[in-house]
Design a protein around this nucleic acid. Structure first.
Length: 799
DNA sequence: TTTAGTACACTTTTT
DNA sequence: GTGTACTAAA
């Protein structure tokens, strides 16, 4: 492992606070792992004193295996704790939750977003708040934001003199939400952090234990921390939330370190409460911080880095930083740009080029990056059509499947019968004759007595408030759960309990009786869950570990490093690198996303996301967009993303087969070209159905794409000097290629020419009407759409 | 009580 | 285009 001087400095700084500003591809993970190894082998720090925190299980897993591979077996007396913030907090709470005296026990359940939404939905129904004005998800995100700010429901109503109707509703829901969770002995993702911090803050014994144990703390992706996480870090590293003069710094930092690593330009989770001001303030918070910048990039070609640097320069909120390329990687190829007619042909283009790459480099890894998960479908289809295997990250994961969640819910109930969400989930699945009437009755009792649903069952039966059939069903249900709980009590192996949850509940039997294809699939998933249980048992996990794992796995954990072709969102791609990257859907409204384009801050976050996406690429980068795509099943015309305007033209190679935002590609007329050009001019589009690109040898079958390439290569060579000379001596109405020429303020433009406007930036001339003084120009500007100008008066310049 | 069919609302990104 | 929520019928 060869490290550069800055990296070595970061590895060797083993006392005191250390801030590493690590640009994309600067060997950040290598520095952290080397640091851990260095601490253990050179400084003789016992591994158990080391804590490394990441944001994703994926990153934690990667770091674990790298450290394991690097540490000499002799030095491995114990293991460093390498964990995500969330699983670290679960660990803390499972040990000490009772010490907080809030009525929670260490058998608490973790509610994922789906569970939380269910709770909020039932609350809203009870409060008679309709979900038109305020959806459950919206309410939930407001609640989450309030929680992370440390705002209570009451405080929410006391902010200033004016409280909006919406806030008032949220506060009411929030209050009940907290009560419900506590009653259910359940915490959500936010609570995991909040409760852990409270525990450390309020219980000195617990705080001291962690402070004394972890003498060397490292935090990865520090730009993504939120206030609560930062507080947790300080409680562990400093043993206090306040860092003031009363602390003897020399004493504190003796044989102790806190190393945070991050990159403001890669902060893409502020929507979730992360705040890059924390990393900006770190040096102030910790006097004597040593700061190291890693700006040497080892990943990408010059071209790719230039593009990334140019994009991110448009952000105001950042620390100036420029990534330097490694000379040995060279200038590299240009970024390939393609404007597709519609989303289907975009997907076809991507799949064709993936096939092309694989022909020459069968083992090379490729990735398709999109802004929203909904975009994945078309790429899946186009790849499947070409029999190209792919791995998809995101969408619903294994643990989100209904049948898997059902079985887990039984297990959760066995551990924590107060878990109302789990109860509601499985009380009648498989169907056992407990219907709406019974459940309503149950909820009434619950509300009257303020108990959990589990306790309400007993009173319901003794009250004879339900019919005999329902009563016996309820008793049977209770037996099942108690049976599972007993197995846990008698320390039966984890795999046995999981098996019992699939069989004794009647779940498997019900599916088998169904005899449908769908049920078959579900049975397979359940089988897989049982297998997962057996594997977990072999790893020495407890049932609780197994359930926690199911709650804390994320979509990104589906990423398989050995997959040749991967589809995922740009967010999931953070921290990864690929020889070839396709960034797709570069359209206004999609990327930047319409819901993120409201404020300058949001827009800058989108730009950082763009930066993250570009910097994933090692050698080949493709950027595509479509002129029209279906949104909500509705066909709509799109505009090129404003980010395209921020890419230097000389870094791009245009592969588009018609007039594009980049200008005309020199290509013989084809049906597809004509249609594309017509669509771009705003003429009535041809019936979309008939543009089927998939049958026979059409323009985008693999063969003709290669043909297309060959032709392009040839025409490319002798084009550029001629084209330049041509536009210089524009005079007639038409030039040789048949493009119309129009003039504006004495300057002349051809259709497809790039022009600059003071207000709208760079755009492309789409069409012209009239002649002489009355001539009008229509220009498409990324980010603003089509604008019409009277040519004579328009302040347009050649771009 | 269950199920099948239809209307509908919905899409950012995630631990 | 897709998954979910509500209504009507068995």
């Amino acid at each position: 492992m060869n490290l550069n001087p800055q990296q070595i400095e970061a590895v060797h700084a083993v006392e005191g606070p250390l801030l590493v500003l690590a640009g994309a591809g600067s060997g950040k993970t290598r520095v952290i792992t080397s640091r851990v190894v260095h601490l253990i082998e050179e400084v003789s720090v016992p591994p158990w004193q080391i804590l490394a925190v990441t944001f994703t299980n994926k990153a934690a897993g990667e770091m674990k295996s790298r450290v394991e591979a690097a540490v000499e077996p002799g030095a491995r007396t114990s293991s460093p704790l390498i964990s995500t913030f969330h699983s670290f907090c679960v660990r803390v709470l499972r040990r000490n939750f009772e010490a907080l005296n809030e009525g929670y026990t260490r058998n608490f359940t973790i509610y994922d977003q789906d569970d939380q939404t269910r709770v909020v939905r039932t609350i809203m129904k009870e409060l008679d708040i309709d979900d038109k004005s305020l959806t459950a998800r919206q309410a939930l995100s407001s609640i989450s934001a309030a929680k992370n700010r440390g705002t209570s429901p009451a405080a929410l109503l006391n902010q200033g003199e004016y409280v909006s109707d919406r806030t008032e509703k949220v506060a009411r829901i929030f209050k009940l939400f907290e009560e419900r969770l506590r009653k259910s002995n359940a915490v959500d993702f936010d609570d995991l952090l909040i409760k852990a911090v409270e525990l450390l803050r309020r219980v000195p014994d617990v705080r001291e234990y962690y402070h004394n144990r972890f003498r060397h703390v490292m935090i990865d992706e520090f730009q993504d921390t939120n206030g609560i996480q930062y507080e947790l870090v300080r409680l562990i590293a400093v043993g206090s939330t306040k860092i003031d003069a009363s602390i003897d710094r020399d004493q504190l930092w003796r044989e102790r370190s806190l190393c945070v690593v991050g990159d403001i330009d890669q902060s893409i989770y502020s929507f979730r409460g992360s705040d890059f001001n924390i990393i900006l303030g770190f040096q102030n918070d910790f006097a004597g911080t040593r700061t190291i910048k890693l700006e040497q990039n080892y990943r990408s070609t010059q071209t790719i880095l230039e593009a990334a640097n140019k994009i991110i320069e448009n952000n105001r909120q950042r620390l100036p930083k420029t990534l330097h390329a490694s000379p040995e990687l060279g200038q590299g190829e240009k970024i390939r740009y393609y404007q597709a007619y519609d989303a289907e042909s975009e997907a076809a283009f991507v799949a064709d080029h993936i096939a092309e790459h694989r022909r020459y480099e069968p083992d090379s890894r490729l990735v398709v990056l999109y802004r929203t998960n909904a975009q994945s479908r078309l790429f899946e289809e186009s790849l499947r059509r070409r029999s190209i295997a792919y791995n998809i990250v995101g969408g619903f994961s294994f643990y989100e499947r209904a049948e898997v969640k059902d079985i887990i819910a039984y297990l959760k109930l066995a551990m924590n019968p107060r878990d109302d969400v789990a109860m509601a989930r499985v009380i009648n699945s498989p169907p056992r004759g407990i219907g709406k009437t019974t459940i309503d009755a149950l909820q009434n009792v619950q509300r009257e007595r303020g108990t959990s649903a589990w306790e309400a069952i007993d009173s319901l039966i003794s009250n004879h408030s339900v019919g005999p059939r329902a009563a016996s069903s309820l008793v049977a249900f209770k037996r099942i759960v108690e049976g599972l709980a007993e197995r846990v009590m008698h320390a039966q192996p984890l795999s046995e309990v999981v098996k019992a949850a699939t069989l004794e509940t009647g779940y498997v039997r019900a599916l088998e009786e169904e005899k449908s294809v769908e049920a078959e699939g579900r049975l397979l998933n359940i089988e897989e869950l049982v297998t997962a249980g057996v594997e977990a048992e072999e790893q020495g996990e407890t049932l609780q570990d197994f359930i926690d794992h199911a709650a804390l796995v994320s979509d990104t954990d589906q990423y398989r490093a050995d997959a040749r072709v991967t589809l995922m969102t740009m967010h999931s791609a953070k921290g990864l690198e690929f020889p070839s990257v396709f960034i797709v859907g570069m359209e206004e409204g999609l990327f930047p996303h319409s819901r993120a384009a409201t404020s300058e801050e949001d827009l800058e976050e989108e730009r950082r996301l763009c930066y993250v996406a570009i910097t994933r690429a090692q050698r080949h980068l493709y950027i595509t967009h479509a002129m029209q795509r279906r949104i909500f099943g509705e066909e709509s015309i799109t505009e090129p993303s404003r980010f395209l305007n921020e890419l230097p033209l000389e870094l791009l190679e245009n592969l588009s087969s018609g007039p594009s935002w980049l200008g005309f590609a020199e290509r013989p007329e084809t049906r597809h070209n004509r249609e594309a050009a017509a669509a771009l001019r705003g003429e009535e589009r041809p019936p979309v159905k008939n543009t089927s690109n998939y049958s026979g040898k059409t323009y985008n079958s693999v063969e003709s794409v290669r043909e297309f390439f060959n032709r392009r290569e040839r025409s490319h060579e002798n084009r550029e000097p001629r084209a330049r000379g041509k536009s210089e001596r524009v005079s007639g109405k038409r030039n040789e290629t048949g493009e119309t020429l129009v003039s504006s303020s004495g300057v002349q433009f051809r259709i497809g020419a790039r022009v600059r406007h003071q207000r709208y930036g760079t755009g492309v001339v789409l069409r012209s009407e009239g002649a002489g003084d009355d001539a009008k120009l229509t220009v498409s500007f990324p980010g603003y759409g089509q604008k019409k100008f009277v040519a004579k008066f328009a302040a347009l310049e050649k771009a």
